[in-house]
Every structure is written in structure tokens, then in C-alpha cells.
């Protein structure tokens, strides 16, 4: 007992200075091997949905007006305890709508066709291949997983908002005050945030981990599809092969993973 306590302390110490937990646990397990049968180990869920590189395709042809998009946004907000503030300044958005000329600032022109001109577009974090937000973050509170999803570790964020300045898509929001009183109906299964940290779309990482599709996908009646960009047989690849798609501000080289069929 004494021995393992010491090693666990050591392990905690090492993990505290920022190494991943996996190698440490492995080392721990092997050092214990002669004494007990198992060292503690941690694994992903078996039923988790995985991909080499996650991507999302939004088929905007299936949308006509904001009424089609509201349930999608609502689903995300509800599941993730996204607050609704009266004050515009304090606004927090994970997924929201805007016009073509604002979403595709470099593609818009005066004579863009009527449908695009008036169609609301869904906007969310692009889970960039080369995320500027991750580069900027001084604490690795914003990080990119191997599968491409860009996530926030709210426990670690110091609220410097460097990531917000860095993101070229305006995908990030800051908790200018305690969000709790502004959440209509709390989803007990997902934490809220606290004041002073940044947040954004998390590609429903918490749902993928337990084998569920992202909330927006489920609420979209098939208009939004996510899948593995590196798997040639995946549904997203199928869609990309057969449709013309656009992405936001590609000239910046960030490599957004959200594709729009227009």
C-alpha cells in the first residue's frame, strides 16, 4: 500500500507538470507488475465513435429559412448549457447563423444569387487543421486532439483571450460573467462553465466518446453529416466527392474542417 501510494503521488506529480497520463500510467503499471496483478489503467470507451480526422459537411440546400436552423442551434445550446444573455456584449455562441456575405467574406459579391444572399448559414468552430487558437494559447488549455478536434480544457484556461484574437473565424466566446443564472434549463449531464474562461463548439466530443453523434447532426434531419475525412468510404467523403463544397477563408491556410454544400 505504502509503495503504491508513493508511486501514485509520483505519477500525479509527473502528470501535473504536463506530460500526458498515458505513458505515466504505463510506467506505473510496469513498476507494479511484480507486486500486484494490475496497475490502474485508463482507456477510451469501446463504443466511442472515432476517426482519423473528423470533418463536417453541411448541406445548405436542405435549409430554407432560420426556422430550419433554430432546432439545431437549440439542441446544441441545451445539451451544452450555453447561456442566453440579455446584454449583447456578454453573448456566448457555439453555433449560430449569419448571412453569406459575413460567413464567406472572401466569396461574396454584389450579384451573388438570390438564394445564397438570403439563406442563413450555420457558423461554428471550424476545428482547423492548423488552428491559430491552439498556437496562441499559453497554457495548452486549447488543444488539438489527434483526430483533429480542437477542444478546450476549462479547468486550465486563464482567460487571457489570446485564442479569441487568434481565431480568424470569430468562433470563440468568453464568459464575461457567471453564466449559470442565464441557463434556462440545466442539462445535469454536462458541466456549465464559470466566469473568466473561453468556450466554443467542442464537436460534441462528450457524445462521440459514448458512441453518440453530435447533437446538431441528430437535429438536422440529415442536412449535417460528420465523419472521417481520411476514410475514402466515409459518408463525408462520399458527399465531398459528389458535390461542390466551399469552406471559410481558405486562403489563410487554417484548413477548416467544416464544408458547406451550396
Amino acid at each position: 500500500m505504502e509503495n503504491s501510494r508513493r508511486s501514485f503521488l509520483k505519477l500525479a506529480g509527473i502528470s501535473a507538470i504536463g506530460l500526458g497520463t498515458k505513458p505515466v500510467l504505463d510506467a506505473f503499471a510496469s513498476s507494479e507488475a511484480h507486486g500486484e496483478k494490475h496497475g490502474p489503467e485508463i482507456f477510451p470507451n469501446q463504443e466511442a465513435l472515432t476517426a482519423k480526422r473528423w470533418a463536417m459537411v453541411i448541406d445548405t440546400r436542405k435549409f430554407e429559412s432560420e426556422a430550419d436552423l433554430d432546432p439545431i442551434i437549440e439542441a446544441c445550446n441545451k445539451i451544452h448549457n450555453v447561456p442566453k444573455f440579455k446584454e449583447k456584449r456578454h453573448e456566448i455562441d457555439w453555433i449560430w447563423v449569419d448571412e453569406f456575405k459575413h460567413v464567406f467574406t472572401d466569396l461574396e459579391h454584389e450579384f451573388v444569387d438570390d438564394r445564397l444572399k438570403h439563406l442563413p448559414f450555420l457558423v461554428l468552430c471550424n476545428h482547423c487543421e492548423n488552428p491559430a487558437c491552439v498556437r496562441a494559447c499559453p497554457t495548452k488549455a486549447t488543444f488539438q486532439r489527434e483526430d483533429g478536434i480542437v477542444l478546450m480544457d476549462f479547468h486550465r484556461c486563464i482567460g487571457c483571450r489570446f485564442c479569441m484574437a487568434a481565431c480568424p473565424y470569430g468562433s470563440r466566446s468568453f464568459n464575461f460573467r457567471d453564466p449559470r443564472p442565464f441557463i434556462k434549463e440545466e442539462n445535469k449531464a454536462f458541466p456549465t462553465r464559470m466566469k473568466g474562461v473561453v468556450e466554443k463548439c467542442n464537436f460534441c466530443a462528450e457524445r462521440l466518446a459514448v458512441g453518440k453523434m453530435p447533437a446538431c447532426v441528430e437535429a438536422s434531419n440529415g442536412a449535417i453529416v460528420v465523419g472521417d475525412l481520411h476514410d475514402p468510404d466515409s459518408e463525408v467523403r462520399e458527399l465531398l466527392k459528389n458535390n461542390y463544397t466551399i469552406r471559410r477563408k481558405t486562403h489563410l491556410g487554417a484548413g477548416p474542417a467544416i464544408y458547406y454544400i451550396v
Partner: peptide
């Protein structure tokens, strides 16, 4: 063990879940 180390376990769980999508813990 839990009495003394629960904060360390929580810390490791937290990093495991948030940062590495590891959600299953196999005890000793």
C-alpha cells in the same frame, strides 16, 4: 487510499477524460 489520494485520481481522470477521451478506469 482514496482518503489520501482522491484529488490525484480526480486530476488524472480529468486530464484523461478531457484531453485524451479516455473514459474507462481499470482499478488495481
Amino acid at each position: 487510499y482514496m482518503k489520501v489520494e482522491h484529488m490525484q485520481i480526480l486530476d488524472i481522470w480529468r486530464d484523461g477524460v478531457v484531453r485524451e477521451a479516455n473514459r474507462v478506469y481499470i482499478s488495481k
